[in-house]
């Protein structure tokens, strides 16, 4: 599998590490309580299809990436910098 890092270009997936759902970008505010954090931290849509997820180019530029990838085929649909994802 290969990913195209916006900084570094197309690289083998072995340069990257995977964290999980891009939902982790949407951390609740500290005063929203345990239920919101449970939803944030534990509950996953886990789609069989396009999945928005977070990877880090840890053996490259260290950028965290927002990747949309199909979990049935591993086909990568888009890669962008996680820091630039509008929230």
């Amino acid at each position: 599998m290969r990913l195209t890092c916006p900084h570094c270009g197309e690289r083998d997936a072995r340069e990257f590490t995977y964290l999980g759902s891009a939902k982790l970008l949407d951390r609740p505010a500290g005063d929203t309580g345990a239920e919101a954090f449970h939803e944030y931290l534990h509950i996953r849509e886990n789609p069989a299809g396009p999945n928005a997820e977070l990877w880090q180019h840890v053996m490259g530029c260290s950028a965290w990436l927002h990747v949309v990838r199909d979990t049935r085929t591993h086909v990568v649909e888009s890669v962008s910098l996680a820091s630039g994802v509008a929230r």
Binding site: W55, R72, H74
Partner: peptide
């Protein structure tokens, strides 16, 4: 393999 998948197959690394 570390990434979410329903593909029932992996990669070389």
């Amino acid at each position: 393999d570390f990434y979410n998948s329903y593909a029932a197959r992996g990669n070389l690394p």
